[in-house]
Design a protein around this nucleic acid. Structure first.
Lengths: 193, 193
DNA sequence: CCTAGTTGGTACCGATCGGTTCGATGCAGC
DNA sequence: GCTGCATCGAACCGATCGGTACCAACTAGG
């Protein structure tokens, strides 16, 4: 969303708009696949504005990934909440939401995992680790509510299915990866009770 | 392994040596994380030699990834063969080998999946798809031998566990990701019979 | 010993990279 | 209307990028 010349005088809003636009561009093209110049012209802002708000390209990337992690976690949380109180329904909701995401034309895998893979950067890797930890916490909680004996292990297994099916959908061409993972998740919970 | 000045006159051997050295460097630093100049000086070859053998940096990358895919597939096949004829033992062997790989200091995730993530390139993505397909074929065959009803689905599930646990070990800090995935694999096979 | 082929080293090319600076433009509040 | 702040557009910087050209050194085969 380009910002007109002198119309937006709220810096916070400008910053939020940049994060929103840059998220898409960096996701589609990769962190190193688009330069700062093209990034700015496409977003309709000047380089000076970008560097005043984020200090560096890495600063922008960090802001984008942090916001992205919050967004994805909220998205999964909402899907779980809509599913009600039954843990089995919650598992179904998680992997059905995953499947809808995988089916999007613009799907290119998890933006945060991709970022950590693209750029060897301690901060980004730590952010990715926290991101995976947040997913694991949700899945572990669901496993606990489902009454499995070892919810920590089952939580890790569900997370492996979630991330693995995302890789398969992104690179392996498996259009039903999430559905297959969903069945596996239910089977693992059943076996773990 | 640097090649002495005029000692190796076998072009095929030179090429193979370059592929071997470049595999490590590109894996550790990322495809875009090391330039051609540094690549050549570190390997002890000249840029002219590199470009005569591979035509471009992308040509080198393609050669490296192709060889890497063959190497990894052979590595897993050997692990399975050593495990004998019992499919359950073969599953154990696959995920135990995976765990030993995850524990290596230089482990940074699957080089081929990483490459496809780092560089949006149709050829590399296709190569990654074929690579995942080869793994899936092995796991589907094991699932079939294990007597599951739907070996195609179980094969996909085992592959998701394999790739997912690799992501968790690389970015999530899960040192026992492969072990946890191994238990899940056995449970899924048992549930699928 | 001589020729043909392979190599390392180096200088060089244009393009692009991330990042800085400066002047012009326009909105908000006084 | 004036002032201060946020912004755009463009010029500019040094560094690095992938890729090319040329040459001296070397080995293998005749």
């Amino acid at each position: 969303m380009p910002v007109a010349k002198g119309t937006a005088l709220d810096p916070a809003e400008t910053r939020a708009g940049i994060v929103r636009s840059a998220t898409t561009l960096l996701y589609q093209r990769g962190l190193a696949g688009i330069g700062v110049a093209e990034l700015c012209t496409t977003m309709g802002i000047s380089k000076e504005t970008l560097y005043r708000h984020f200090g560096s390209k890495n600063g922008l990337i960090h802001a984008v990934l942090t916001a992205r992690s919050d967004h994805v976690v909220r998205w999964l949380d909402d899907a779980v909440k809509e599913a009600g109180d039954d843990p089995d329904d919650q598992v179904t909701a998680v992997f059905d939401a995953l499947g809808r995401w995988h089916a999007e034309l613009s799907f290119r895998g998890c933006a945060i995992v991709n970022a950590a893979t693209q750029q060897y950067d301690v901060e980004i890797r730590a952010l990715a680790g926290r991101h995976l930890g947040r997913h694991r916490a949700l899945l572990t909680r669901i496993a606990h509510d489902a009454g499995v004996r070892d919810e920590v292990t089952v939580g890790k297994q569900l997370l492996a299915l979630l991330e693995g099916s995302t890789v398969l959908a992104s690179l392996g061409g498996d259009t039903d990866a999430a559905s297959v993972a969903k069945d596996a998740a239910h089977a693992l919970i059943q076996a773990g009770r």
